Amino acid sequence: MSETRKSRVLCDVDFDRDGRQTGFLRLFHSSHVSAYGFLPIPIVVLRNGEGPTALFVSGNHGDEYEGQLALCGLAQSLDPERIRGRVIILPTANYPAALAGNRVSPVDNLNLNRIFPGDPDGSVTEQIAYFISSELIPRADLVCDLHSGGSSLLYTPCSLTNHVADPDLFRRQIAALRAFGAPLGYVQGRAQGQGGNLTLGGVAERRGIVTLGTELGGAGAVSAEGLAIARRGVRNLLVHLGILPETEREPAEETRIYGLGGQDHFVYAPEGGVFEPLAEPGETVRAGQPAARIHTPETPWAPPAEAVFARDGFVLCKRQPGRTLRGDCLYVLGGAFTPSG
Results as ranks from 00 to 15, higher is better:
I41G: 01
F28E: 13
S151C: 05
G62V: 11
P80A: 08
E283I: 00
Q194K: 12
G23M: 03
R82C: 04
G218Q: 02
P106G: 12
G73L: 07
R86W: 00
L10F: 07
E248P: 02
V210E: 08
N48H: 15
V285E: 05
P281E: 12
V143I: 14
L200N: 02
I128G: 01
E81V: 08
D141V: 03
A269I: 07
R323N: 06
G322R: 14
T211Y: 10
L238W: 06
A35H: 10
E298T: 13
P251W: 12
K6Y: 01
F314A: 04
A175M: 11
Q194M: 13
G233V: 06
L325K: 13
L238H: 05
G62F: 07
Y95G: 01
R311C: 13
D168G: 05
L198E: 03
R232M: 15
A35K: 12
S123M: 06
R326Y: 00
N162I: 02
R326N: 06
G218F: 01
A302G: 00
G85P: 10
R26P: 07
S2Y: 09
E126C: 10
Q320I: 02
D145H: 05
G217H: 08
V13K: 00
V143T: 11
E271W: 00
E306V: 15
E246M: 06
L160M: 15
A182C: 13
G59R: 02
A291C: 10
N197G: 09
G213L: 12
L90E: 01
R235M: 08
R20E: 11
L238M: 09
E66P: 08
P290D: 06
F116D: 03
R103E: 06
A302P: 00
G51E: 05
G118C: 11
G226E: 03
K6A: 15
S2I: 07
I209A: 03
A291Y: 09
G220I: 08
N109Y: 12
G59I: 09
E253W: 04
A70L: 09
A75C: 05
Q320S: 14
S151P: 00
Y258K: 04
V222F: 05
A179C: 07
I229D: 01
H163F: 14
T338H: 13
S31R: 11
R114T: 05
G259N: 08
V267G: 04
S223R: 10
Q192G: 01
A291P: 11
A204I: 13
T338V: 12
L238G: 04
T284I: 09
R232V: 03
L46H: 00
I115S: 04
A54E: 09
A221D: 15
L160P: 00
E225K: 13
S77R: 15
D312A: 01
Q76G: 02
P339W: 11
G313L: 07
G327W: 08
A176K: 07
A70C: 03
P106K: 11
I243K: 03
T284E: 14
H29S: 14
H240Q: 09
E66D: 10
